[in-house]
Amino acid sequence: MAAMRLEDRLDAFDTYMFAVVGAGRLTVRAYSSDIRQCLRILRSMGVETLAEVTIQDLRAWQADVAQDHAKSSVARKTAAVRRFFAYCLAHDVIENDPAASLMTPKLPKVLPEVLTEHEAKDLMDQVDDDAIDAGDVQGRHSTQSCLAIRDAAILELLYATGMRVAELTGMNVQDIDFSQRTVRITGKGNKQRVVPFGNPAARALQAWLEGPRSQILKKASSARFDADAAFLGAQGGRIGQRQVRELVHRHAEVAHVPDISPHALRHSAATHLLDGGADMREVQEMLGHSSLSTTQRYTHVSIEQLKAKYALAFPRE
């Protein structure tokens, strides 16, 4: 077996992660960056080929990055490196996997951040009121009012379905079925699922699709135009994840609810569904969780909220 230089298999690994594993481009990019950083440090330690790498080398690398990174970052980098060396072993690049016994730092269990049901209602009421106030003049909206109506549709749909922000930005108009009130979502690994949504999300989506979206497209340049995207930016291109995060933060501030991310709306949707008596496996399917244990975290959130309410109602020590 020819000795492989440290970076010789990285491009092939990236292709494998994207084409075979089905990882998203951002995930592949993050893995590649973490692995390259590891290999640079190994080279600085005098390691030149993949066959030379030992568990002691990897522990030294882990100790090095732990000096400047949080445990969560070290855990993520370790997962990437372990995946890379497991790939190299499976593809006969190396004879032994030096990362097989590399331990991942133990992380404290942190419960997902969620809004209370009252806070979620305040947020949805705020964006819906903004959309109503946007109004129209003789059937036409300004760009600003178009975006207010779009924001309401985005927030209502995020909360109604618990979808990830990347899933929302990847949505196309044809993914929405108003007759069944469902949306087809393409999740991690290109896995698809169909999720229902309620009347508030349906009204907000129709208000966006039946006028404002078309107006933005008409003004868009050919370079920006995206006729398929369900949600657009002001220039007519498919909306980006950063834009969605920014609008969620902005509307949370206006609604005077805790500052949250789109992912916190996902957590909130799951928690409120379980609080309302939804079956855990149904919530698992709706969120696209591969493991039921991931969904079970939200039962702990519900218990913690119950404890907090109990403490308020019965404050005696």
Rank of each mutant, 00 (worst) to 15 (best):
V248Q: 04
Q62N: 06
A308R: 15
T54F: 00
L115K: 05
V183R: 01
H256W: 14
P200F: 05
Q62A: 04
H300D: 11
A19P: 06
G211H: 09
Q206F: 06
Y31W: 11
L10V: 12
C88S: 05
G198I: 01
L6P: 07
A270I: 12
P258L: 08
L292N: 07
A227G: 10
R5M: 14
H249P: 05
F225R: 15
R29C: 09
G22V: 15
A148D: 04
A227N: 14
T143E: 13
T169R: 03
A270L: 15
D125Q: 13
L147S: 00
K191R: 13
T295S: 10
V81T: 00
R36L: 09
K219Q: 13
W208T: 08
R140T: 09
D151R: 01
T116S: 15
A23Q: 12
I94P: 00
A227S: 12
P262D: 14
Q56T: 09
K191E: 05
H263P: 04
D125V: 11
H267Y: 06
A230R: 02
H249M: 10
L247N: 00
R281E: 14
H300C: 10
G198C: 04
P196W: 01
Y31S: 01
G46R: 10
T54M: 12
R83N: 06
V53E: 03
Q62E: 09
L273H: 03
H267I: 10
S179Q: 12
A166C: 15
A86S: 01
S44P: 04
R281N: 13
A223K: 13
G240W: 07
R43N: 07
H289R: 12
R238N: 01
A270C: 14
G135K: 06
A86I: 00
A90R: 06
E246I: 14
W208S: 06
A234N: 02
P315A: 03
Y16P: 03
V301S: 15
L58T: 00
G198K: 02
S33D: 05
R59G: 00
C38V: 02
L217I: 03
L247Q: 02
D279G: 13
K307P: 07
T186K: 14
A86G: 00
Q241S: 12
T54N: 09
E246W: 08
R245Q: 15
H300K: 14
S179T: 04
P108T: 06
S179L: 12
A66N: 09
P112K: 08
G139Q: 12
A204Q: 04
L42N: 05
Q126D: 09
M17H: 06
Y310D: 05
L247P: 00
S44F: 15
A2F: 13
L147M: 04
A80V: 03
L273W: 01
A100V: 04
I239C: 03
N96R: 12
R5Y: 07
A278Q: 08
